[in-house]
Amino acid sequence: MRSYLARAYQLTNTSVLHHAAVPKSYTDRLGRKLFMALLTLQGLGAFALITLGVILKKHAVAHSVMRPRIRHEINRAGIALMPMFFFIALALGFLVVSQTVAALAKVGATNYLGSTMVIVIVRELGPLLTATLVLARVGTANVIELGTARALGEVEALEALGIDPVHYLIVPRVLGLALGIFSLTIYLIIGALASGYLFAFLQDVPITPGDYLKQIAEALGWLDFALLALKTLAFGFFIAIVTCYHGLAQPLRLEDVSRVAVRAVTQGVIVCVLIDALFIVLYLVT
């Protein structure tokens, strides 16, 4: 139990580098940054594997405690964000979809409407925008809550009670974020496509709702559904890992929490972009 967190921290203990004198040359500074990035990557990888191991190994442990906690996290990372996502879906429909539909109609390229919508909204903007917004809303809260709990010694208190902190604190957040981002992405895509057509309709674009839906349905393949599910679950899993890792894996003082939150959000954005790039390659290959 204790050793899980300690192992992840030992793998990425960059405090020596942080406290060392600033290198004089630019190449040395670059080298140090690179070295620290590699250490962080190693720590994140170890933490992700540990968390995955705990999810698989302890799925049947302490149901009466874990089920309400998982429900709470799904609510926080999913249901509670629905009003905001309703607004974002409307905005996305108005700003992107309606203009794209109108522009394609103007140049007589409405045949490409379905494939354009699938690439722009279903494959890219929908999942990435959802992941970024959830990272900002829930990811930062994760770092602050866990960082504060760590600084106040609540993690040691859990260990003293024989409760695995990874199981109690991390697993619900990972599951909540993964399912939350998956569900919100679906709502965002449906909302953006529907509101986009509505705004295009108001601009007298000559496409019937039936044609619009038919084109989108024809452009969507089974692979889009499978990869969308995988991608959103991966976004949720890794956002939770990055934010929980920074909040929990390293011993913190209260004054460190805000600095660590900024670092976690930055790394969260980088991780999301890297996952997105990986899925672009997958789309191109398949």
């Binding site: 302490a62 405690v65 809550e145 010694g153 609540e154 040691e156 208190a157 009670l161 024989g162 409760i163």
Partner: peptide, 21 residues
């Protein structure tokens, strides 16, 4: 200083080890 779990009430703090184990 206690190190109580700040997101739980006193009763929930006391009940947590029982519920878990």
């Amino acid at each position: 200083g206690g190190k109580m779990f700040s997101h739980l009430t006193v009763a929930e703090n006391v009940a947590l080890p029982l519920l878990y184990h």
